[in-house]
C-alpha cells in the first residue's frame, strides 16, 4: 500500500471515531448549546471526509465539494447561533 493510501485509510478511521463522538455529544448533550456546537462540528467533519474521499478517489471534484461545505457550514453556524440566543438552554425549549 502506498504511504499516501495508508495515511488516508488511517485518517478515515480516526474521522469515523470522531463522528461517533460528535454524534454522541449531539444526542446526549445536556444543553442546547452543546447540541448546536456538535452540529457545527459535524460540518467540519464533513469537510474532512470530503477531502479524504477526494484523496482516495483522486477526483478533484470532491475537494470543491469540501470547499462548498466549508462556506455553507460556516453560514449554518451563524444561523444556529442566532437561533440559540432565542432558546434558553436550561428550560430545554424555546422561551
Amino acid at each position: 500500500m502506498s504511504f499516501l493510501g495508508l495515511c488516508l485509510t488511517l485518517a478515515m478511521v480516526l474521522i469515523a471515531g470522531a463522528i461517533l463522538a460528535v454524534a454522541w455529544r449531539l444526542l446526549a448533550g445536556p444543553s442546547s448549546a452543546d447540541r448546536v456546537i456538535a452540529t457545527d462540528m459535524l460540518g467540519l467533519l464533513a469537510i474532512a471526509l470530503a477531502a479524504l474521499v477526494a484523496g482516495l478517489t483522486g477526483q478533484q471534484a470532491f475537494l470543491d465539494v469540501a470547499l462548498g461545505i466549508a462556506v455553507f457550514g460556516f453560514l449554518a453556524a451563524i444561523a444556529f447561533a442566532c437561533l440559540l440566543e432565542r432558546t434558553s438552554a436550561t428550560q430545554e425549549g424555546p422561551r
Binding site: P30, S31, S32, A33, D34, V36, I37, D40, I47, A51, L63, A66, L67, A70, V71, F74, A77, I78, F80, A81, C82, L83, L84, E85, R86, T87, S88, A89, T90
Partner: peptide, 28 residues
C-alpha cells in the same frame, strides 16, 4: 489553500457567535 484560508478566516467569527449565543442562552 483556498479552503484552508477560508476556514481560518471565518472560524473566529463562528466561534464568537456560538460562544455568545451559548452564554446568552444560559448554558451551565
Amino acid at each position: 489553500v483556498a479552503g484552508m484560508v477560508f476556514l481560518l478566516a471565518t472560524s473566529p467569527l463562528a466561534s464568537h457567535a456560538l460562544g455568545r449565543a451559548a452564554y446568552i442562552s444560559g448554558a451551565p
